[in-house]
Every structure is written in structure tokens, then in C-alpha cells.
């Protein structure tokens, strides 16, 4: 079970959340960037910064650093946070 430590609610199971994918893509200011925003995905096998929406709880959108091969959750924060992947 992926467990996410919601800053407001504490550690909760993945079933309480809606996954919203890649958190490294940002809604662009200009038209040209929208294709990549909606469609381009780095899809790494490794550390992935992603959105999890706590729809079954406080409804905060959380930014999570999780490894896509081991499922380890390294950091959970709010949208303004910038968690760094561990070096090497």
C-alpha cells in the first residue's frame, strides 16, 4: 500500500487519494507550451515528482516524491514545496 503522509491528516493509504500524475509539468503562460503540458511526460524509472489529491480527506493537493521502481515515498509536501531526489 502506498502510504502518503498528508501534512494535515497524517499517514494515509493510497485509497484515500486521487493520483494526478506528473508534478513537473506546469500550466504554461503561452499557447506553444500546452501540448507538452498536457501530453509530454518524462515517465522516469526512478524518482518521480507527482500530485496526489487527498479527495478522501482534507482535499489538499500534495506534491509527492516517490520512486517508480521501488514505490518508496521519500517526501510529501504542498504545491509550493520543492523536494529534491536523493543524490545517487
Amino acid at each position: 500500500m502506498i502510504q502518503i503522509a498528508c501534512p494535515y491528516c497524517g499517514p494515509r493509504d493510497e485509497a484515500e487519494f486521487a493520483y494526478r500524475g506528473d508534478a513537473t509539468v506546469h500550466r504554461p503562460a503561452e499557447e506553444a507550451g500546452f501540448h507538452d503540458y498536457v501530453y509530454a511526460r518524462a515517465n522516469p524509472r526512478g524518482w518521480h515528482l507527482e500530485w496526489w489529491h487527498h479527495t478522501g480527506g482534507c482535499r489538499a493537493v500534495l506534491k509527492v516524491l516517490r520512486h517508480t521502481a521501488t514505490h518508496e515515498v521519500r517526501a510529501v509536501g504542498l504545491p509550493a514545496d520543492r523536494p529534491e531526489p536523493p543524490s545517487a
Partner: peptide, 13 residues
């Protein structure tokens, strides 16, 4: 399961 993974395994939900 609904989240990115290369692990070829999922969880109970």
C-alpha cells in the same frame, strides 16, 4: 492501480 510504476506489482486496493 493508477499510479506510475515500473515495478510490475501493485497493491491491495
Amino acid at each position: 492501480d493508477g499510479w506510475n510504476s515500473y515495478a510490475q506489482r501493485g497493491n491491495l486496493p
